[in-house]
Design a protein around this nucleic acid. Structure first.
Length: 350
DNA sequence: AATAATGACAACCGCAGCTAT
DNA sequence: CATAGCTGCGGTTGTCATTAT
């Protein structure tokens, strides 16, 4: 026998989440921590399946998510990681800690794919350069492997990997140089990071974004080491300094601006948490420097894949630098022969 | 002004691997 | 060990907003 069934298919609600549902979910996770999704619909009264709850949390409500406005650096990383890893969006997302796999996937499908195709067609107007199509889908896909000889494919893969590593090196060094670059700037700034694109987004969208901000307020409550000038607005920081810094580097002020809430949300919030005064949030204890177990749970879970945390970036950096040094000392200069550099073309136009 | 086409993104579906029973 | 549910992932669809006609 297996486990009991996850959720009834009957009476399960579908479609967009309402602010009320978001708040129910958030408040439940705040109390119980993420995980055990099977129990969530039952315990919250949400008429959603566990899968939907998990998805809503990981793609939208989870703290530390940055939305919209992909930076050039992020674009480059996505392009090269896609070339390196194929359509493994979760793996790619693990290198962009503020982005969800869904977000990256959408961005790839709606922006980057077109951009690359356009670029390809500009630089290779003749129809025999059909490889651009296949390289856009996945360089490691079986059909690509079949379409060229094994030797050619392996050579290209080597090249692609090398180029991707180079791009990652560039990206990482640039991140290290500019720790407060625009990758980090929007989450707590109070401005809508999606403003350019979604100026006309619905009240609902902005409310849920506010919920995410609220969560950020709940979970970013670590005592300030110094009344720091630098507002590190990032939930995570990239690079090797993350482990030491990220607990101290976050803006502390809890965001409980009830003006941001719709009247409806406000009502639900008040029913859930009582009256919210501007100077005193129901979670004001957090801001006094004591992180609740739930908050640390958020911290641990907020990026589910452990691949994506700073430690891994350090590993990657190590990997990159080791590889670079090998190539520098190295011997055969094998790359010189590899003139077929599709990835470089992709990077150049950015 | 009305309608169609397109874009952007949230959410769903189905599959595969893992794991509890 | 076998079975069936849980979870995560990638592909796809649905919906709403914007732009073009």
């Amino acid at each position: 026998m297996g486990r009991p069934p996850c959720c009834d298919k009957e009476g399960v609600k579908k479609g967009p989440w309402t602010p009320e549902e978001d708040i129910l979910l958030v408040s439940y996770i705040q109390e119980n921590g993420p995980g055990n999704w099977r129990a969530v619909p039952t315990n919250t009264g949400l008429l959603r399946c566990s899968k939907s709850c998990r998805l809503r949390w990981t793609n939208y409500l989870r703290p530390g998510i940055k939305r919209g406005n992909f930076t050039e650096q992020e674009e480059k990383m996505i392009i090269h990681l896609q070339a390196l890893l194929g359509n493994r969006w979760a793996a790619i997302a693990s290198y962009l800690p503020q982005r969800t796999d869904n977000d990256i996937k959408n961005y790839w499908n709606t922006h980057l794919k077109k951009k690359l195709r356009k670029n390809e067609s500009n630089s290779h107007p003749n129809p025999q350069n059909q490889r651009s199509q296949s390289s856009l889908s996945s360089p490691s896909s079986p059909e690509n492997r079949n379409s060229s000889s094994r030797g050619q494919w392996e050579r290209r893969l080597q090249t692609d990997i090398h180029t991707a590593k180079q791009a990652l090196t560039d990206a990482l060094s640039s991140i290290n140089q500019k720790p407060s670059s625009n990758i980090h700037d929007s989450s707590l700034s109070g401005s809508n990071p999606c403003n350019n694109q979604t100026q006309a987004s619905s009240i609902y969208a902005s409310s849920t974004e506010n919920i995410a901000r609220l969560l950020q307020g709940w979970t970013s409550k670590v005592p300030k080491k110094e009344s720091s000038s630098s507002i590190s607005t990032d939930y995570y920081s990239l690079g090797s300094t993350l482990e030491n810094d990220h607990a101290n580097s976050r803006e502390q002020k809890p965001i409980f601006n009830t003006d941001l809430l719709t009247e409806n949300n406000d009502r639900v919030f008040r029913s859930l948490f009582g009256t919210i005064e501007s100077t005193e949030s129901p979670y004001s204890d957090f801001s006094q420097g004591t992180m609740s177990p739930e908050a640390s749970l958020f911290e641990q879970e907020s990026k589910p894949s452990n691949v994506g945390r700073g430690t891994t970036l350090s590993i990657i950096e190590k990997w990159l630098f080791e590889d670079c040094s090998i190539q520098q000392c190295g011997s055969n200069g094998r790359d010189e022969d590899l003139t077929d550099m599709p990835l470089q073309e992709h990077a150049d136009f950015l």
